[in-house]
């Protein structure tokens, strides 16, 4: 199996264990776990956007009164049902975002011609990023033109049928590690089924 595809497969196995989780406390634990995994795999976790998403989604859902009133702030009632729905949606969004980050951390290669076209796009992107220099004042379009023209000359109309190179294959240890991550997600899901935690 190709190394780049291992995390995609592991992530696909993690998703049901996460989406089927009904307990909010365990769901939060799964989110923290997947964030840690993403960091281990070289991705960055930015706490501010995560908190903004969490707070904004919960607040928006609190506007719809649902279930037992927990407390009131002026005329605004905070209800348990709305809080649970808000937390569920926010955690799902954040969790899926980091599952996705984890899945692409192995730099997967999409198969077929479309995959090759994507590779070509990334080749051009890399060229723009590396050759882009801060433009002089009022010469932004000229700078952009230079980069765009360069690409056509450096990389002329290459055929997409070129074979793939540098394929790395999976080692046993990597399979064990990724399987462990998947297992942790499923154990957490199973614990949720036992109904021993509140907020189920």
């Amino acid at each position: 199996m190709q190394k780049s595809n291992l995390r995609i497969i592991a992530g696909l196995f993690m998703i049901p264990a996460f989406l089927l989780q009904k307990n909010l406390i365990l769901m939060a634990a799964q989110v923290i776990f997947i964030m840690v995994v993403a960091v281990i795999k070289g991705k960055k976790v930015k706490p501010v956007p995560v908190l903004v998403v969490l707070i904004s989604v919960v607040l928006m859902n609190l506007l719809q009164v649902n279930g037992k009133v927990l407390f009131t702030i002026g005329s605004f009632s905070v209800t348990l049902g709305a809080l649970k729905i808000g937390l569920d949606k926010a955690l799902t969004l954040i969790g899926m975002l980091y599952v996705s980050q984890y899945m692409v951390s192995g730099k997967p290669k999409l198969p077929g011609r479309f995959g090759q076209l994507l590779s070509k796009q990334f080749l051009f992107f890399e060229h723009i990023v590396t050759s882009w220099k801060r433009p002089e004042k009022g010469k932004f379009i000229e700078s952009l033109d230079t980069v765009l023209e360069e690409m056509e000359h450096i990389y002329p109309d290459t055929d997409l049928s070129n074979g793939e190179t540098n394929i790395l294959y999976v080692k046993k240890l990597e399979v064990v590690t990724e399987s462990f991550f998947v297992l942790c997600m499923w154990v957490s899901f199973m614990v949720g089924l036992l109904d021993i935690f509140p907020w189920g």
Partner: peptide, 10 residues
């Protein structure tokens, strides 16, 4: 792929 959001709601 670049932002890592391909498998998320985003």
């Amino acid at each position: 792929l670049i932002n890592g959001t391909i498998f998320s709601y985003i």
